[in-house]
């Protein structure tokens, strides 16, 4: 069972405030609407612009997605790698690396207001004069914490629910449709674990994948039709001839490790929500070939054995 452990001794301690903090300018000019290219670097550039112009954001949205009144004229911020890098590095003056990573995870969560959440968190951190990562009474801090936690859970689920199929050319292939954009977060795990086999994990919702070629893992995109079979279901003809057997064995194992007397579908679904079943081979309909062990039912004194589920009355 995978659970985080707590112990009484790990009570959070007050983190010492980083030494050199720059004074953050007041955002005294008229608030603006910002538009950017939808990349994380782009968003960091927006943050740079906000303090450069001393103009707080009314809204920050990807270009094209900008909503609002007819008269909203967003400031188009062009992504500037140097400015983005400066902001990314600068954040460490006000928060530790873990908190900064949470901001990146908030970005990957694809929430419609993610940009403003990130801005507000960063702004609060810069003005607080101390580490705010545990300021749970603040709604925005709690929001970032919760989004980061949801991202972490989805990452963990994908590390669990990926089911590889081996193709004839020895590639291990899997398709996923995660709730959030977690491929960047799971790359390290799969690279470390499956170092001696080529693999591809494809996010069907976001139309890109991770490919490991025995040397390195890259983000890969397939333009229309180049890899149609791999981006959906790998057709039976390109599968390794032993693949159906292992799928069958896995299904048989799954059926027989279950204890029918303890059946609890509510718990089952809580751990493995329905929306993930599509890509889990053990949840596909099939015939069960071998009967599970039939446990003996207690015998009622003087009567025949009772069927499963019947209660004994004394």
């Amino acid at each position: 069972m995978a659970i985080s452990r707590f112990s009484a001794s790990s009570v959070p301690v007050v983190a010492a405030a980083p030494a050199a903090r720059r004074v953050v300018p007041a955002l005294s000019n008229v608030p603006l609407d910002y538009a950017y290219d939808g990349t994380f670097e782009g968003l960091l550039t927006v943050l740079f612009t906000v303090y450069d112009r001393k103009a707080a954001p009314n809204s920050i949205q990807p270009t094209g997605a900008v909503q609002g009144g007819l008269f909203v004229q967003p400031v188009e911020v062009e992504t500037n790698e140097a400015a983005a890098a400066r902001v990314w590095k600068g954040l460490l003056q006000y928060m530790d690396a873990e908190a900064r990573t949470r901001l990146f995870h908030t970005f990957l969560s694809e929430q419609p207001d993610r940009e403003l959440v990130i801005f507000r968190y960063a702004d609060l951190a810069m003005r607080a004069g101390r580490d705010i990562s545990e300021h749970y009474a603040d709604d925005n801090v709690r929001r970032v914490q919760r989004l980061a936690q949801q991202m972490y859970r989805e990452k963990h689920r994908m590390e669990a629910f990926v089911r590889f199929e081996k193709t004839q050319d020895g590639l291990f292939h899997a398709t996923i449709e995660p709730d959030f954009d977690v491929l960047p977060l799971i790359a390290a795990h799969f690279t470390k674990r499956y170092a001696d086999q080529r693999w591809l994990i494809y996010d069907r919702r976001r139309h890109y994948g991770l490919y490991y070629d025995l040397h390195r893992t890259d983000i890969v995109q397939f333009d229309g039709g180049a890899m149609p079979q791999r981006s959906t279901a790998v057709s039976a003809t390109v599968l390794d001839e032993r693949e159906p057997l292992y799928k069958l064995l896995w299904q048989a194992y799954f059926d027989h490790v279950n204890i029918p007397e303890r059946k609890n579908m509510k718990l089952h679904r809580r751990h493995m929500p329905l929306r993930y079943w599509k890509y889990l081979s053990e949840k596909q309909p099939r015939e069960q070939r071998f009967e599970p062990i039939r446990n003996k039912r207690p015998v009622q004194p003087g009567g025949p054995a009772l069927g499963a589920g019947a209660a004994v009355t004394e």
């Binding site: 629910f161 170092a195 204890i259 089952h268």
Partner: peptide, 22 residues
């Protein structure tokens, strides 16, 4: 570059109908 690792957190890859981790 062998196969696999077992560091830290465990992973439940599936759950049986009785709600136990596989």
């Amino acid at each position: 570059k062998g196969l696999g690792n077992a560091e830290g957190m465990g992973i439940c890859h599936s759950y049986t109908e009785d709600g136990r981790c596989v």
